[in-house]
Design a protein around this nucleic acid. Sequence first.
RNA 1: GGCCCCAUGGUCAAGCGGUUAAGACACUGCCCUUUCACGGCGGAAUCAGGGGUUCGAAUCCCCUUGGGGUCACCA
Length: 495
Amino acid sequence: MTESTVRVRFAPSPTGALHIGGARTAYFNWLFAKQQGGTMVLRIDDTDSARSTQASYQQIIDSLNWLGITWNEGPVVGGSYGPYRQSERKAIYEQEINRLIAQGKVYPCFCSVEQLQEDRDTAQREGRPQKYVGRCKHLSDDERKVRLKNGEQRVYRLHAPEKENMVFQDVLHGEVVVSSQEIDDFIVWKADGTPTYHFASCVDDALMKISHIIRAEEHLSNTPRHIALFDALGYSLPIFAHIPMILAPDRSKLSKRHGATSVEEYRQAGILPDALINYFLLLGFAPQKENDIISRQEAIEVFDLQRVTKHAAMYDIKKLEWMNAQYFRQIPVDIVLHNILSSLVSRGWITDDPSPQQLAWLRTIVAFVKERARNEQELMTMMSYYFEGISTYDRKGVTKYFASKEVVQRLRFAIEILIKVTPFTSVTIEEAYRQLITELGIKGGDLIHPTRLAISGVTVGPGLFDIMALLGRGQCIQRIEHAISAIDNGILFVE
RNA sequence: GGCCCCAUGGUCAAGCGGUUAAGACACUGCCCUUUCACGGCGGAAUCAGGGGUUCGAAUCCCCUUGGGGUCACCA
């Protein structure tokens, strides 16, 4: 088997949290690399020193780790094409730009930012394309020398290609044709002596021997520029694959106002990495499988870059939540218990050195409640009444189950039998309840629902008799008594 | 505004010239159950519009419309 030459990269800018769009791009790159036996490179595109932060860098690394998206070369792990942070590659860019200067492929431009802005405004007004007007393109060598010597602020622009059309292939979009008219002499080197994104990106992709550039579609329009750069630099072209973007539910570009957009936020909301990864796969790709639940390993096998959809997708939080529930339920009880232990302590629900009996009791609660929860947060909420008394009752439940005149009397009967049930187990409690129900000549629900509401405050949850056994005789009676007085006094809600 | 990309139910999507137009989430009806969740069985719901090409178009071509991207000394 020959060694694969597939090399892909994910190149985030550390200017914020890792976005779900970026995370999916990273995942698709990773999938492709794994499947092809290729190399995944992580590169940090931090040429913008003003906006890049160390905190963001760290968060991106953390998010990627959490998602299980690994890289063969990059920060932390190193590699033979490093360094992998653009801020550490300045010498390389300088060497490359000097080469281009020497070859006359770029030229200095002395136009001021204000001047350029004015040019653009004018073009906009007159309905012309917003391209560089070329003021500095044809300066004489002498003039350039003088102005350079005088230390005038300057950037460097690329002499854009003059051929008719630029044609390139995209794995998803096929042939894309752009008129060279559209590409102006864009800036590749900034006045502050640093490369622009386009320049650094192309230089790195070439030097890092990237074979496939799999990136978001927002870069499709930039690709002709990049090709011009690859050409000017004398490097061969990688293969391009522009994957669709992820849109907010209102079809606009995802932003903070749409709620959770970063991986970190989903993490905090209790979304499992496997669920998020699985959801990403489905957003833009249809595994031809029976089920939508696809493990990473399966994903690697079925993924096909060419079959990724071409249109943007809106993310659907509902499906993600459903997906999360699928994964959450598969986690063994003991693991879940272990995971929430510290939260239980910090809420004051248990002490930090629970006894074996208490642990066993907790385990049973988790086992029952877990079946109904979609994530840890929900689980915690649904467990609360095992640890805290009931002060407020579900509103709909009250009108439904506490309204009838007989309720109080029935609950009193219930207390009477609960006093006598021995031992106090799910089975014996149910027997006693059933007997009472028969004696009263009512339907099971007529007693069961009010009891549930009285002891848990809510109308949903595990089997009532299981809850009661777990809670213990004392708590059950106390809570029912409390409910009776609450009904009598009409104090059922605490705002 | 110029240019580029895209267009199947509410959402994700299968389909690649002939299908009763899959499936999943969501919604909804029934069943199971003390409730909820799970599960099972049903239901409603889609080819943006208009022209071609063809014996035959969701599928191919053109136009329109709509959405997105890009045109920065941001990435």
